[in-house]
């Protein structure tokens, strides 16, 4: 092909989400009449999920679907892009934030600084907390040891919990032996795939981040080599992908819940209005902290604040 691309995504070979990225790759090939060929790299196949951002930046990988919380140290604004705790889960509101209220321009600039082109983001299901004991009210988080890396850790500390750093491979054993009382996953489906329900039954009803918005990024110099018509085709395929993610991830989320319920998952009781308020406050408390992490972060938080007024 005229352009040989490698596309690294977050998921392992054989997973349902992995298939959606595969269909983005196939679409790019099909829509460009084979002028762009895209080789899919699943998680761990050459580049670890932690390394996707750096690999696309350096051009080792042409295109990537990174999970921004893993790159908080490289691009702090990415954490805000994904969605801060307490944020909305309404896709229309989210898209409004990006395309009408100004996040798009800020992010394009932020990614460009790293030599990356920011394509249409897509929405994935929110982050939920799974605990060994039911959480009856927000007070129950007091002293609870919950595996929650990075940004989510700060949020849980605001609620009185004790966030724990653990690597993914140790969550199952740690839940089962009681090293931790609960864990977040990168979304609901993660909990299903990790079989965490076998060792911790209770899902808390309120998501940690409303919905997760994840970017698709392309290496700038590879992008520049594309003629305008191909650029449009890649953008078009990404928009289709975003749509597919939205519909499919809802379906899969429902399916994952059904699977987990069958294995004995229970929901913690419905949070009260006071709980919801405490939750929202714990999230808003973080805004100023995040704004400090860089100029782009500050600008994105400004947009949020204006929106909240």
């Amino acid at each position: 092909a005229e352009h040989n691309w490698r596309f690294a995504n977050l998921y392992s070979r054989g997973t349902a989400f992995g298939e959606v990225y595969q269909s983005l790759a196939d679409n790019i090939e099909k829509m460009s009449d084979g002028r762009i060929s895209v080789q899919m790299m699943y998680a761990g196949e050459g580049v670890s999920t932690n390394g996707i951002f750096g690999a696309v930046k350096s051009g080792l990988i042409t295109m990537g679907a990174p999970f921004q919380p893993m790159h908080a140290g490289e691009m702090p604004a990415g954490i805000i892009e994904v969605g801060l705790p307490g944020g909305t889960d309404n896709p229309a509101e989210l898209m409004d934030l990006f395309y009408e209220k100004g996040w798009q321009a800020i992010l394009e600039e932020a990614y460009a600084e790293h030599g990356l082109v920011w394509l249409e983001p897509y929405i994935q299901p929110p982050v939920y907390i799974l605990t060994k004991e039911p959480v009856n009210s927000v007070e129950d988080f007091q002293g609870l040891k919950i595996r929650a890396p990075g940004a989510y850790g700060k949020f849980l500390r605001n609620l009185g919990a004790s966030p724990v750093n653990l690597t993914w491979g140790e969550i199952y054993t740690s839940l089962s032996t009681g090293v931790i009382d609960g864990s977040i996953g990168s979304n609901l489906i993660d909990h299903r795939d990790g079989n965490h329900v076998e060792v911790a039954k209770y899902m808390y009803r309120m998501p940690l981040a409303g919905a997760q918005v994840l970017p698709v990024i392309v290496n700038q110099s590879a992008w520049n080599k594309l003629p305008d018509d191909l650029k449009e085709i890649v953008r078009g395929a990404t928009a289709i992908h975003a749509q597919e993610q939205l519909t499919k991830s809802r379906l899969w989320e429902a399916q994952a819940i059904a699977d987990m319920e069958e294995k004995g998952m229970k929901w913690s009781p419905e949070p009260s209005e006071a709980d919801k308020a405490a939750w929202k406050a714990a999230g808003a408390n973080l805004w100023d902290e995040y704004a400090k992490e860089g100029p782009f972060s500050a600008r994105m938080i400004d947009v949020l604040k204006k929106d909240a007024m």
Binding site: A72, M75, E113
Partner: peptide, 18 residues
């Protein structure tokens, strides 16, 4: 060079420099 330019850190809450 990249690390200094962008002040790269670990992605954790502690976020020590790299």
């Amino acid at each position: 060079e990249q690390t200094i330019k962008f002040n790269y850190r670990r992605q954790s809450e502690w976020a020590p420099p790299m």
